[in-house]
Design a protein around this nucleic acid. Structure first.
Lengths: 208, 208
DNA sequence: GTATGTTTCAAACGTTTGCTTCGATCCCGG
DNA sequence: CCGGGATCGAAGCAAACGTTTGAAACATAC
């Protein structure tokens, strides 16, 4: 146990602050201040702010995509005809997890994804495509099987539309503090949204 | 000719640069430099960078929402039963316009909208809701008539999902351009997207 | 032509940013 | 007990930022 939890504290704080305020608007001083670590720790452990941003994504995305890839492979080898609902439910369940903290982190991360997409963080987009493009292709390949009557080019578009629906919605949710106080004020949770989202996406992908 | 075109040049340049790089990442020096005006002109004419951002939105959104409101009122008074497709087509046609330059500006503006939403520019969101909330309500009221079998709360969600689909897609356009071009060997225009988007939104709003 | 009000300009202001450096301290394995 | 990586507080760097200023340039009215 030679390394302490400074790295984890930085990542935890950066994850929340980036999601709340955006990348450019979140200074290293704000992160290190709230994390209770020294300002120099970020550049000591990560090298730069850009590398920190990538590390935040990697910590969330790598285990998720690994798990997703496993689940998708199970579905691939399954003999039963795969329904669109089943595929989307599997992905959704995986993102929301089984615990109580995971949906909150999922929402935080979707906010991050929204910022990564609309803000032209080119380095981030390149990084995401390079590291997680395979799982995405695996998913779309499987999706094509569930909607064989939809032309591939049309399916391509509708996948992006669906991604936009969920990311945009979760990005636009009220501040994360009020969400975290789930006992009070009964604000919407990630699983609430998923429940509403599923019929929308299914209907959208199948088309009019 | 007491007023010069400095204001217009600033707005034109800011519109493009904000859409390309985001609000925080676009400096006043970049805007004024590219526009060929003095740095102080922004604060002289608009007062602040925040006010400039609002002015960019207002210049596009005010005439559009006025025109949309007129069109919607026509549909309200129409005796024919209003179909969901017709309502969406009217809005889409209006956004894309009839000229050749309007679709491009529409795409630029949708990128702006995406940044305004995912970046927590609270002042902007409050401003948009305050100034253009009425037209939005007018639209949703009309939409409810076209999908009477969908519960209002569900419809509310699906409108937001649809908004997310279009804004997110157009926000990520330039990357989608390259992806689509590579995978399917064809480039994309705003009206292309609208064409793909319509069946998706119709299917999504009607649900699975 | 002179007065008046508006617009443009170069320059500077004060602040914040990401990042680096420095020596002192702390913690832990050898 | 000792040595090396980790962390700290503090200070400072150059660059970039939004904003302000005072004077010059301009247009317009009398």
């Amino acid at each position: 146990m030679s390394q302490s939890d400074t790295v984890r504290r930085i990542l935890d704080t950066a994850e929340v602050l980036f999601a709340q305020k955006g990348f450019a608007e979140t200074s290293l001083r704000a992160i290190t201040g709230k994390a209770g670590v020294n300002l120099a720790a970020v550049n000591y452990h990560f090298g730069s702010k850009e590398a920190l941003i990538q590390a935040v994504f990697e910590r969330y995305l790598t285990p998720f995509c690994q798990a997703l890839s496993v689940k998708l492979r199970e579905l691939e080898l399954d003999d039963d005809p795969l329904s669109l609902e089943r595929l989307l439910t599997v992905a959704s369940r995986l993102a929301l997890g089984s615990g109580t903290e995971e949906p909150r982190r999922a929402m935080i991360f979707f906010r991050l994804a929204g910022q990564a997409y609309s803000q032209p963080q080119d380095h981030l987009r390149a990084y995401l495509r390079k590291h997680y493009g395979d799982v995405f292709n695996q998913f779309t390949t499987l999706l094509r099987r569930t909607a064989p009557d939809v032309p591939p080019v049309e399916l391509f578009w509708r996948v992006h539309f669906s991604l936009g629906a969920v990311i945009f919605t979760l990005s636009g949710m009220e501040s994360l503090q009020t969400i975290s106080k789930k006992d009070f004020n009964r604000s919407v949770s990630a699983s609430d949204i998923a429940q509403h989202l599923l019929p929308f996406v299914v209907g959208g992908i199948k088309g009019s």
